[in-house]
Computed example of a mutant assay.
Amino acid sequence: MQPLRDAIGNPRRDAVLARRAQRMKAQQEEYQEQLRRAAEQKRAEHEAARPVCAGCGTKFDNDRWESTRFSPEPGHRWHPTLCGPCEDKTLAAQDQAERDRLAAEAAATAEKARGWRSRFRPGQAQGDPGQAS
């Protein structure tokens, strides 16, 4: 059972409803296009803000970028401007420099200690207080 007007049909009403549906579809497509453009612009801005490594110039991956954004200030063993491989190389160079410095200090200390002790050993240099005449 349906009303008589619906059973007979109303061509003008059907045309209005069809135009309204067509307009709504066009508006929906335009809105979806605006959303797509806004998302694309946001992605482009996000990529433009992505930092690059100060050593080699490659862009940071997402994990590295997140760790540099949310981590504390740079420290002795952390370089937020370098990518992982460059940071590893830098840390290895710092470690080697530290080992070289410690070895040089140890050699200097040994040389200084050897020179100081040699004055008290018998039979070394002349005028040595260890040799009594």
Rank of each mutant, 00 (worst) to 15 (best):
Q124D: 10
A21E: 14
R50V: 00
E66Q: 14
R5F: 11
R5M: 08
E87F: 02
R64P: 02
W65L: 07
P11E: 12
D88F: 06
E87V: 05
D6K: 11
H46Q: 14
R69G: 06
T81N: 14
H76P: 13
T58P: 00
G57T: 01
A44D: 05
D128K: 06
R117P: 06
Q32P: 02
R121K: 15
Q22R: 10
E33T: 11
C83D: 01
F70G: 05
D95F: 10
R50H: 02
R43M: 11
P122E: 04
R101V: 01
Y31G: 12
G127C: 01
E73V: 04
A97F: 04
S133N: 12
Q94K: 12
K89L: 11
H46M: 09
Q94I: 11
E73H: 02
M24S: 02
D100P: 03
R64E: 04
Q96R: 14
A104L: 10
R77W: 07
A125S: 15
P129E: 03
Q131M: 13
A48M: 01
R99H: 01
R69D: 09
Q27D: 01
K89R: 12
Q22V: 05
D14I: 00
Q124C: 08
R69M: 08
P3F: 10
T90N: 08
N10S: 06
E111Y: 04
A92P: 06
D88A: 13
N10C: 13
M24D: 04
Q94R: 14
